[in-house]
Design a protein around this nucleic acid. Structure first.
Lengths: 263, 263
DNA sequence: CAGTGGTCTAGACCACAAT
DNA sequence: TTGTGGTCTAGACCACTGA
């Protein structure tokens, strides 16, 4: 069987060009995707078809695909083909998501956010324990030795989108409902306020990087999808850091949104 | 010449494992890097050495390297070797960087930020022109047809770290100093206030994704480095959107920092 | 010059998906 | 069973780096 491509879908190579053949092929595919000749979720020509069309070896074609995968443009499915990666719906995180108004409605931040996009939120892998604080966490919490850690993973419509670990000083959290798997309505921030730690503000640090293999697994990430790494510190009105939350998020599932003062 | 590896630096393969050989090699190198057996900037064993050590073909070794490149852990230099990618110093962008206090000191935001890390800031590729607004920009600015666009690229200590395009409604910016390449002390935000548009707040949207080939070129990005894509809208005290700034930043050069209200 | 990574070929066998 | 991508080999020639 000799596969063949609809003529005109893709062009030809320029043998006089300095640009490597596999880059030229990647360029053509990228441009075709950008121009909408291949739509989201649509299958690209198979490796065999491209080998025939361009008259190159299979490894050369695979090299082209690997470029596009690295750019997050396509993803391969074993036995099926290579497809234009669909852009999943994004969740918009607004900077008012931790306001008291929401806590008083008994909603945790993740639920508040999920409401705004109409998805089905879910939490799994909840794990609460006491551990030794890492140097970084200790510094952020003001030199504490041991902390309560709360790990959980969040899913939206069944897809894992972020996982997070909260760290709290033992003198605040031990023996309270914060140390329970289910902290109750409004989440741990509501409980902190119940305990007399009136929250003043949060500081959030945002980084972006490629995920580790473990993160790829936990978030079921496609190739070419970076993660947001977000570290939030909660301060009470006395200026004490009462919680640090370390979150890793699938970057293709989020748009972070903040309001900055001009004055 | 038969290259050989210091024994004990790397282990052996597990032929019974389901894990592909090139993944096993990548795993070993990654772990060695994580454990600090190879330090930042240090050269990894050459392809030939690994071919000898593991008894595999060269393509298999190259596949391993390509995994690590995709993770942003290493970068290859033609003719020299493969090196552990150094983490460049990051610039910390605080959420008070657009406050009037800074503008009144005659400093633009980029200069303010650069001051805080002690680097040498620089701007090039300045380009100012009038263009038709894209649908997105038009929507953000409140249905304007044409806009003034200001493009510039920022460097820190000679390294390009971000490029940005600002869009302003013509009825505000045309014929003013904002339409000049050099907008004067305090930047365009100071000029907007001079023109009577007292700034109230900014909204910032943050996305993260892999860069396009053009962005790789403009920012001189290494493989496996995502970009921040930041869209900021400036509002005056009358609630009008007076500027939209579209910025693409090398994510390994930045930590974004925001303060969120708790009330 | 020798050593390095960059590109490319022409095969091979395998595992997975759909029919 | 056929077509798909996943892995691997054993070469080849090239371009860049540094001594």
């Amino acid at each position: 069987m000799s596969p063949s491509l609809p003529s005109g879908l893709l062009g030809t190579l320029d043998p006089t060009s300095d640009r490597a053949v596999f880059r030229q092929i990647a360029d053509q595919l990228r441009e075709a995707i950008d121009r909408g000749r291949f739509r989201e979720g649509e299958k690209l020509p198979s490796e065999a078809e491209l080998v025939d069309h361009f008259g190159v070896s299979r490894m050369t074609v695979r090299n082209s695909f690997s470029i596009l995968q690295g750019e997050g443009l396509v993803h391969a499915e074993h036995g099926k083909g290579v497809f234009v990666r669909p852009r999943p719906p994004v969740r918009r995180l607004a900077s008012d998501r931790f306001t008291r108004r929401h806590r008083e409605q008994g909603k945790s931040a993740f639920i508040v956010e999920a409401d705004t996009v109409g998805g089905h939120p879910q939490v799994d892998s909840l794990e609460v324990k006491e551990i030794k604080a890492s140097p970084d966490i200790s510094a952020r919490l003001g030199s504490v030795r041991r902390v309560l850690s709360r790990y959980r993973r969040y899913l939206l419509d069944g897809r894992p989108v972020e996982f997070a670990t909260s760290y709290l000083p033992l003198d605040i959290a031990r023996g309270t409902q914060i140390a329970e798997p289910n902290p109750g309505p409004g989440g741990i921030y509501a409980r902190l306020e119940d305990l007399g730690h009136r929250l003043d503000h949060f500081d959030e640090e945002i980084r972006s990087r490629m995920p580790s293999p473990a993160e790829v697994k936990t978030l079921n990430l496609a190739a070419g999808v970076p993660v947001f790494h977000l570290i939030r510190t909660a301060y009470d009105t006395e200026g004490r850091a009462v919680e640090v939350c370390d979150t890793v998020m699938a970057s293709d599932a989020y748009v972070l949104s903040y309001r900055l003062p001009a004055t």
